[in-house]
């Protein structure tokens, strides 16, 4: 295999073989290569170092590098699999794979649990859920009295926190999501089905026979 590997691995630190990435994710080799086209554009948007920093991540998502947001920060932290403060190509593909329509349901449940477990303790605590609710209210301009927020939290924890210890563990989250499947809607990106048609230029850079 020629230029995809030799050139890409020099210019893109942490670059991984698309064939291996395809075998580890819900993507085909062609889709991984198409994602590389997207990755190249994002990772060179502010600093052309072959890695995605938080500013580039937010610029790609919101077209606005200044927007600070609790959820965007948390998603960046989860995409930064190796905890280096930047996202490399392997991190990007493996994380996006969870959002593929064909990705295992369990992977989506795991990712959503980590997303809402803001401090990574292994539990979704009431204070974290309140913090996220307040962030959502600020972002949307919706106004709810603190008492209403507490009522929503009471009701949510009454349903989700089966052992009533004030925090939601992984198994409680799995049960809660089964009862409320719409909660996983944010975990599927239909765009990922069409990634090769969205970034067709990947065929000009591919050296893999599958295409």
């Amino acid at each position: 295999m020629g230029c995809f590997h030799s050139t890409a691995s020099k210019q893109f630190p942490g670059h991984e073989d698309p064939v291996i990435l395809a075998s580890q994710t819900a993507f085909s080799v062609s889709e991984v290569e198409a994602l590389f086209e997207l990755y190249k554009s994002i990772s060179s948007s502010v600093i052309d170092d072959g890695l995605i920093n938080k500013e580039e991540f937010q610029l790609a998502l919101f077209k606005n590098r200044k927007k600070e947001n609790l959820f965007a920060n948390r998603i960046f932290e989860l995409f930064d699999v190796k905890k280096k403060g930047v996202i490399d190509f392997g991190d990007f593909v493996k994380s996006l794979s969870v959002f593929h329509p064909n990705a295992p349901h369990e992977d989506k449940i795991d990712f959503s649990f980590k997303l809402y477990d803001l401090d990574g303790t292994g539990f979704i605590e009431r204070q974290e859920v309140k913090q996220m609710l307040i962030a959502l209210l600020c972002e949307s301009g919706m106004k709810l009295a603190d008492e209403t927020v507490e009522i929503i939290l009471d009701k949510t924890f009454l349903e989700a926190d089966v052992n009533q210890d004030g925090k939601i563990d992984k198994s409680e989250w799995q049960n809660f999501v089964r009862q409320n499947p719409s909660l996983l809607k944010i975990m599927t990106l239909p765009y990922l089905r069409d990634i090769t048609t969205t970034f067709p230029s990947f065929v000009f850079h591919s050296e893999v026979d599958e295409i």
Partner: peptide
């Protein structure tokens, strides 16, 4: 307080409305 109110949305349904949890921005040129 009436935590059993059947009309009440749960906290995660509300949180899921955040536009910042929508990654489709990556694919919009």
């Amino acid at each position: 307080k009436n935590p059993d109110s059947p009309t009440l949305i749960n906290a995660f349904q509300l949180i899921g409305m955040s536009s910042c949890l929508d990654l489709s921005g990556f694919f919009e040129k």
